[in-house]
């Protein structure tokens, strides 16, 4: 029932307006706690020193980069199967956010790599997969921006998103395979075999904070998208009304 209720954009706008302040407050609190734990509680890694603090940004960003794609894939199913009117709004709103988190994950990854590996970029399996994901996000955004009609753009992007969802595991697998082929296994792994609780807890809190941040931004972007579509309908209506008025005058 909840999903059906949300199918009405106006009702969705009202509900999200009520929900947003709470989510934003939770997000701020989670970030405050997470950052405090990161800088004052979490110990330095015996091997990586203080650079382990980069992990508290890098890992949640990478996690969100993937979660955002899952949100888009589920929304695409909603567009194609259930024809849910908000599904393509959700998918479109999620794409730039996903691209931003993927970018953060790439930049922090390479900034972490410089002190650890001695170079900003290593064609490591994970970094490479994330780079491919970034290109896919940008491609999807480009597709949305090139097709003018929002309904048609939503359907096209939904098809591409789902094909991507099928392909991402294949890409991940092939990149892993390619990586083991080309690189000795002596690279320092980003995560050890076991994560100590003193590191795990701040990481989980930061992951929660980032997830909340995603939902706040996603809801805001969805509201924008609904307004954009409203504006578009009104503009089309105004234009057709103008034509409707102009034609009889021309006939006279």
């Amino acid at each position: 029932m909840a999903i059906l209720d949300l199918a009405n954009p106006t009702r969705f706008l009202a509900l999200s307006a009520r929900l947003l302040p709470w989510l934003a407050a939770a997000c701020v609190i989670a970030f405050a706690v997470g950052l405090y734990m990161t800088f004052f509680v979490a110990p330095d890694d015996y091997q990586q020193g203080a650079t382990v603090k980069i992990m508290y940004l890098h890992v949640p960003a990478a996690w969100l980069a993937m979660m955002c794609y899952s949100v888009m894939a589920i929304s695409s199913l909603g567009t194609l199967i259930w024809k849910h009117p908000l599904a393509d709004v959700s998918a479109k709103a999620a794409a730039p956010i996903g691209a931003a988190f993927t970018l953060i994950s790439l930049i922090t990854g390479s900034l972490w790599g410089k002190p650890m590996w001695g170079t900003y970029w290593v064609w490591d399996a994970r970094l490479t997969s994330v780079l491919v994901l970034f290109i896919m996000y940008l491609g999807l955004i480009a597709l949305w921006r090139t097709i003018e009609d929002p309904i048609r753009a939503g359907k096209a992007a939904a098809v591409l998103t789902l094909v991507g969802a099928i392909n991402l595991p294949i890409i991940k697998f092939s990149v892993d395979w390619w990586n083991t082929l080309h690189q000795p296994a002596s690279v320092i792994r980003m995560d050890g075999p076991t994560i100590h609780p003193t590191i795990l807890w701040p990481l989980l809190v930061m992951a929660l904070a980032f997830t909340l941040l995603f939902f706040v931004m996603h809801l805001m972007a969805m509201r924008n998208e609904i307004l954009r579509r409203r504006l578009r309908t009104m503009q089309l209506q105004a234009a057709s009304a103008r034509v409707g008025v102009a034609t009889p005058q021309a006939a006279e």
């Binding site: 480009a142 890409i171 092939s174």
Partner: peptide, 19 residues
């Protein structure tokens, strides 16, 4: 745009073909 959209999906083919 077509090329940009297709390239990520062609990476596995390229990897296994070249290897």
């Amino acid at each position: 745009l077509l090329a940009v959209l297709v390239v990520p999906f062609s990476i596995p083919v390229l990897i296994f073909g070249v290897s």
